[in-house]
Design a protein around this nucleic acid. Structure first.
Lengths: 187, 187
DNA sequence: GACAATCTACTCATTCACTGAATAGTCACA
DNA sequence: TGTGACTATTCAGTGAATGAGTAGATTGTC
């Protein structure tokens, strides 16, 4: 697939993290994400899409829903993670993203989730991501050498390299920064 | 609009650049973009989408089409820029992008086009973009001060700031780099 | 000469991600 | 009492993009 092509998003896996702490219903998750901090700082998702993503997770067997009535209020679907969902979540959390542009949303969501799981997860995720992007730096440098046909081409590669380098510098600060925040760990 | 929200893309304006040089038909533009250099290095677009974007430009009155037959071959639509399209193009080329994530595609497309128009356009585009992003840096620093509620929040702002800073460093090299490439200018 | 692959030039049904509004209420406050 | 916000979810529609279809011509190989 072309490096510029889009890949299916998997950010809905972040929702599993909330549900692993305790079962929640959709509107509760929506409320949580409305706050402009933590995951809500990174990921703005409308109610319609949130329910759509929850439906997808249910369809994939990663969560299960049970409806409970609540007197005069409309019935609500309590959602909880299945064993399969738990496994998928732990695999998802430490999987590095493929493209630097995916850091802005997908990687930050993974980092948030890893942080809540504990320092071991954070270091594993960051280590793998650094490895992935270091490898890409090599590739980009080679491409710039071999494929540039103009000053413009060269600037394009320099831009890409600059973004990856900036991300790597930032990654190197993640471990220390999050280690200072015991509030993140939940395990 | 939410800073994370998407804005309508305008990259199809880059196509006006080709047509301002000389009228072309859609398949020719498709061929040009297939090459992995210049605009094709930045923007991969399938035939179906290219024709759709050309239709949009036509609908907006920025280009006009005339069909010419070519013997046994299927007839082709020759496309040329209207006066309105020429104006829109020159405005579009120097308009800075709103979000750092738009540099990867939209801004690089504008830079390519500005480069072909001449150094005056490149310096105008880069100057405005630097101004826009410097302003955003101030805003991001302030938000980090005022809105961070955790180490994670802080890392998110640091990531965003790092990307903008890296982009500003790269922008500062654009003028010199493209000035060394006389092949870019066409005006 | 036959045939297959590629090229020419364009169109279109479908998918994916997402938006904004609809639905049918309850609750809190002025 | 009335109004606006909240609760909780669903759904029709939109925009961007993909991959395949259409109907040939051209090119290269056997």
């Amino acid at each position: 697939m072309s490096p510029l092509a889009r890949t299916p998003i998997t950010i809905e896996h972040a929702l599993l993290g909330f549900l692993l702490e305790r079962p929640m219903h959709g509107y509760e998750i929506h409320q949580t994400l409305l706050e402009s901090n933590a995951l809500g700082l990174v990921w703005r998702v409308k109610q319609g899409q949130l329910y759509s993503l929850l439906a997808r997770l249910e369809g994939e067997g990663l969560i299960r829903a049970s409806t409970e009535s609540q007197g005069a209020r409309p019935p609500r679907k309590m959602l909880e993670v299945t064993d399969r969902g738990r496994e998928a979540y732990h695999r998802w959390v430490i999987e590095p993203v493929q493209h630097p542009r995916e850091v802005r949303l997908l990687f930050l969501a993974k980092l948030f989730c890893a942080h809540r799981l504990g320092p071991g997860y954070v270091s594993e995720l960051v280590r793998r991501q650094e490895q992935e992007f270091r490898g890409q730096l090599d590739g980009l440098s080679r491409q710039m050498e071999e494929h540039s046909q103009s000053a413009f081409d060269e600037l394009v590669y320099e831009y890409r390299i600059g973004q990856v380098e900036a991300t790597l510098r930032w990654l190197s600060r993640c471990l220390d920064a999050l280690a200072r925040d015991p509030a993140g760990a939940r395990s």
